[in-house]
Simulated scan of single mutants.
Amino acid sequence: MRVLTIIWACAVALNFVIWGSVSLAIDEFVHPWWLYVAGPPGAVLAVLYAFGIGRPRR
């Protein structure tokens, strides 16, 4: 679970930086498409974590 979360966070960070760079380069607001990269996989990770999948047994 930790590895999946790190991979997800890196992908989101990279897409956010690209989006920010493009927005600054063209000097106008661009639709925040990086949310489409962040949202669905983030929701899946949240549900998996909520159900205890990937957490060590007590």
Rank of each mutant, 00 (worst) to 15 (best):
N15E: 07
H31M: 11
P40G: 07
L24C: 12
W19M: 11
W19G: 14
P40Q: 03
F16Y: 04
G39T: 12
G52K: 06
G52Q: 04
I7Q: 02
R57G: 15
V30F: 09
T5R: 03
G54S: 04
N15H: 07
V47R: 03
V37G: 07
S23I: 02
L14E: 07
F29A: 12
G52L: 01
A50D: 03
A38I: 03
T5G: 04
V47S: 04
P56F: 08
I6P: 00
V3G: 00
A13W: 01
I26C: 06
W19D: 11
A25G: 02
Y36I: 15
G54H: 01
I18R: 11
A46F: 09
A43P: 08
V30L: 10
F51C: 13
A9E: 06
W19E: 13
M1G: 04
G54M: 01
F29Y: 06
A11V: 10
A11T: 09
M1P: 00
W8P: 00
L45C: 08
S21R: 07
I6W: 00
R58Q: 10
I53R: 11
F16G: 03
I6Y: 00
F16M: 01
V17T: 11
L45H: 04
L35C: 08
L35G: 12
D27G: 15
G54E: 01
V44N: 02
Y49M: 09
V44S: 04
L4I: 04
R2W: 07
H31S: 12
S21Y: 05
R57W: 09
A46M: 10
Y36V: 15
T5H: 05
L35S: 07
W34Y: 11
V22E: 05
I53P: 09
W8F: 10
C10R: 09
L35A: 09
F29V: 14
W19T: 06
I26G: 04
